[in-house]
Amino acid sequence: MTRYLAESSKVITLTVNGESCRTEGPLPLQAFLERWSAGARMVAVVNDEVIGRQKVGDVVLREGDRIELLSLAGGG
């Protein structure tokens, strides 16, 4: 695994839905969402900021970031 890391990459710790998670980073949010198989229903909240779909490409996850993945529940 290590050999694939770019020179500037290192292991970072993120908090995903309240649970600690280690990954290589900095990690583009888009790549993170793909890795988590977060479908089109999912919305990411990074450090309390809701990331609209058009903004996903602008966000890079770094050490200590908190990510919440939300999906709209439609039933009642």
């Binding site: 089109a40 229903r41 919305v43 909240v45 809701v50 609209g52 779909r53 939300l70 999906s71 709209l72 439609g74």
Partner: peptide, 10 residues
């Protein structure tokens, strides 16, 4: 603010 688009139909 949280869910800007309707999710795809199911």
């Amino acid at each position: 603010c949280v869910f800007d688009e309707l999710p795809p139909g199911n």
